[in-house]
Write a protein that binds this DNA or RNA. Structure first.
Lengths: 208, 208
DNA sequence: TTTTATTGATTGATCAGTCAATCAAAAATA
DNA sequence: TATTTTTGATTGACTGATCAATCAATAAAA
């Protein structure tokens, strides 16, 4: 029963946090969502904090497995960059409840060292996924800058989504990030002379 | 006394929230920081929520006045774009406690309609400040996209800062955003033929 | 029987919010 | 001027609600 309950509780936590838009949810809420008593949640996780840690760990695991799969399917460095972008805005990740959950964890990271560790891992991983392929296309220093910029843009689009004010869609978010990459690859390309009339444009989503 | 106390409490709230990195601070904490009793805080604000609302309102007011001043000093559209960027990363705004406070309010916006309203105002204002000047340089549809992208990048750099993992400094953040603008202005410029050898580069912070 | 799963009941702590009481300064009155 | 009254500022003490966490008891399975 243990693994079943643990999974059910973690899933329930993610759901409740997403719906509520905050980590200020009670163990009772989570337990109810999972269909068990609050006491059982404590029995298996020891504390609320531990359950929350497991929850973010699960979110991260999911993202990683999606990324690995997408990366495996892409052949060229440029295609891998697009794959990383696409995974970041994948429907699951972009669901309002998921965004709300990420945001809640970002806030929590200000206090919980362990939560912060996980988010740093996420940030590093995103950056280094981008960096690896950018280095195949650009000098190292330019690659580093662009990786940083692209990661920031992805996170920014993601966060802005949470306000639901001017809902930029999934496709538009991807296009915006691709535009950034295309434009900076063109600007910072090491040998622009060799392909003047055909700048890097391996994807759609161009400016107008 | 009333205006004095109100200001002291709002400032104290901002400080405590920033330090603690969350809105889950007690009225006692805030009152202690302001040097008054918790009861007085309730007396003047009626509820914790109201005090929090006033606090975010104050944050926004500060940002707006900085922006207005910076905008007034800039002459050309391109210079105004740089001014908006610079204000976003101004030292006050970029202090860890301020970032933590913004983040906390973003999370709160998932539940508090009023908090959400304020953040939407912020998001719209940033976007439209950028858009106004971009429209002087580009066709409307390209301007809109780039405004969206730049706003996202600013927010993203800001959020990433909150993790303090790979502390991108103020200058680097500005440079990254400027690079984005420069690259996309060059790409999407309406009449690139007329100034081929001298693309828009009215600021420093270029690639490499 | 022993072990595992599960819960109801309870505890202790924390907080937002209330209230009646004090204090001080200003205003009114003598 | 001396006095009383009024008003606003301020607080300590208290209340009610909420919750994480505990634990002893029960049910079910091995």
């Amino acid at each position: 029963m243990e693994p079943v309950r643990r999974k059910a509780l973690v899933d329930a936590a993610l759901r409740v946090i997403g719906d509520h838009g905050s980590l200020a949810v009670t163990m009772s809420d989570i337990a109810r969502q999972a269909g068990v008593s609050p006491a059982l949640a404590h029995h298996y996780f020891g504390s609320k904090e531990q359950l929350l840690i497991e929850t973010i760990r699960s979110l991260l695991r999911q993202l990683r497995s999606d990324t690995v799969a997408a990366l495996r399917a892409a052949r060229t460095p440029r295609a891998r960059l697009s794959a990383v972008i696409r995974v970041s805005f994948h429907a699951d990740q972009f669901a309002p409840e998921t965004i709300a959950a990420w945001l809640a964890f970002y806030a929590e990271a200000q206090r919980s060292e362990e939560t912060r560790r996980f988010l740093v891992i996420y940030a590093r991983r995103l950056r280094s996924n981008l960096l690896a392929d950018l280095k195949a296309l650009l000098p190292a220093d330019a690659a580093e800058r662009i990786a940083e910029g692209a990661a920031a843009m992805i996170d920014g689009l993601y966060i802005r989504q949470s306000l639901k004010s001017a809902p930029i869609g999934i496709e538009a978010s991807i296009a915006l990030t691709e535009d950034y990459l295309n434009a900076l690859l063109a600007t910072a390309s090491p040998s622009p002379r060799s392909e003047k009339g055909r700048p890097h444009r391996t994807t759609q989503g161009q400016m107008t």
